[in-house]
Design a protein around this nucleic acid. Sequence first.
DNA 1: CACTTTATCTAGAACGTTCTAGGAGACGCT
DNA 2: AGCGTCTCCTAGAACGTTCTAGATAAAGTG
Lengths: 335, 335
Amino acid sequence: MPHASAPRPAKRPTLADVARASGVSVALASIVLREAEGASGESRARVKQAAADLGYRPDSRARSLRSSRSRTLGLALALGEPLHAELADALYAQADQSGFEIILGATGRHRDERRVLNTLIDAGVEAVIGVFPELPAAQLVQVSKQLPVISLLRKVKGIPSVITDEAAGVEQVVSHLVQRGHTRLLHLDGGSAVSAKQRRDAFIESAARASASASGQILPAGPDEATAFAVLREYLEKMPQAERATAVLAFNDRAALGARQAIDLAGLQVPEQICLAGYDDSEFARLAHADLTSVRQDVAALAQAAMQAALNSPGASSTHAPQLVVRGSTGQRRA
Amino acid sequence: MPHASAPRPAKRPTLADVARASGVSVALASIVLREAEGASGESRARVKQAAADLGYRPDSRARSLRSSRSRTLGLALALGEPLHAELADALYAQADQSGFEIILGATGRHRDERRVLNTLIDAGVEAVIGVFPELPAAQLVQVSKQLPVISLLRKVKGIPSVITDEAAGVEQVVSHLVQRGHTRLLHLDGGSAVSAKQRRDAFIESAARASASASGQILPAGPDEATAFAVLREYLEKMPQAERATAVLAFNDRAALGARQAIDLAGLQVPEQICLAGYDDSEFARLAHADLTSVRQDVAALAQAAMQAALNSPGASSTHAPQLVVRGSTGQRRA
DNA sequence: CACTTTATCTAGAACGTTCTAGGAGACGCT
DNA sequence: AGCGTCTCCTAGAACGTTCTAGATAAAGTG
């Protein structure tokens, strides 16, 4: 059955319509609506009134085509990550303040990060802020010749990078655990996820530095529940109790949640028999059952720095201090 | 907030550059690169070669300004929702097939859905697919006069809506529980979240219909862990055991996770003493500890229908059947 | 008075595409 | 030859903005 032809959408009002309705030139209408200088109070009122009456909204494609000012920012991130969601929230707040709009691109498991980047650029954004775990630095640098590109959560040489001091975060957890008497520490790493390498390296160093008697072991896992669960489950089954780690540091809170399932399954008590720490202090960490000690990244500061870097000419890199949030999963008795 | 100008970015090559380099007119270059008819094989080769050499990529703003074909779709959703992330993944896959790009807008707790919609439209999308829990139908209808707007997961009169048959889903869970002998059922509802009302109503009806002896109670909660936890915790503390529900149906998996924490805290065994079911069959449901019976929405079908509706002139509404996924949390012994 | 200055406005050229209308040849048919 | 009809190509007008370079008139300055 042939489709009825589309009910041709009501054409949206253009600047010319507004100008005509208010009896001024297109140029003047543009001046008024841009809040630029050079229009009398009377014209201002008339044009604004007409614009409001017609429900005029400027066409950002035409605007950005002509002026390369779309007042729009591109944000690339992964959809399932709680931390990314928090960052997006904070960035939206920042953008509001600067009068910018934000559009998003989702980098996914098998979605080409380069393509996401291109899509955003094609849509006319003035700058891109993004978490690009795998995109080669060279490509990011290349693109950054066209417009500002800010790397979030990952240090990329050659472009402004806004990151958290991973070494400091891991150090805080490790020394917290060592202080509580733990000597055998285990880290479930994040595989190829962003900052996984930094945390892995920092874990080794911190463990070595913290105490002569402390030892750190690393288990290759991933940034989500599933692999952390599987990996830790196997570890707990195989490892004799005497040699078993007494504290586990997961790559992030999601992984910690998976780890917790494995621990529960093994019949171990948290924190009495084994301690567990996460990373990112996402909403998961605050769940009552998890009650997870975690490392809080300073989302607000990260967002603000990223926005600043995106808006200022040669954006500045910055590193932000994380903060350990101690909860029940590492030894405090729960209420 | 001052916006400093970027250091003169390397201007990206334009169609005119390509035309010049290959010795043809701009119009012909356009024809070739659009794969339109009317160019000789030889010109095709030359233009394509030149385009490749220069690294030309068409400017989608100019293109869409002129032709209203940006080959870009807008997708509006909430960032923290696993189901939305799954839908996005599926829609990306669909878009790939149709040669469309996707840009996202995040509807958030306090972010104006209308504004997100406008931002996407301004960026030049050809159609918008979105989960708009709160935006008044009238506004959606209004906007849909300008371009196709598809409502996902929420039935909106006047625009194509692609939804799941909530009544059927709830019915499946309820009759599953009743069959297992439960007579006192409890529903933690989703508050003002999308489809919360439908599930609430369906729960009442299903409980009444399922059995003369079955009774259903509803507790007002919300679509995430926190409120579900708090509400159920209070319920479990106050309600005498004899009157207590023996099966809980949470609004979604996240809420179920929160509910599970409350159940664990109360020292009750799942599924022996109390059964728990979620909704959406997200990755949370599959967590070993949760092992959650849940209702799977047919994400692939939803995505395909939404895409179809977006691309075809008067898009068609459709309702898709969900499927109950039985896991350990409602009575099967775990391995 | 002749002049600069200032404040307000406007025409028209951009921006990088697509699309319309048509032009130049080449070929085939009466 | 004359005429149509292909195929390939191109000039130039859109699209809806912003921006440059004036134009106009009122007001200030000597």
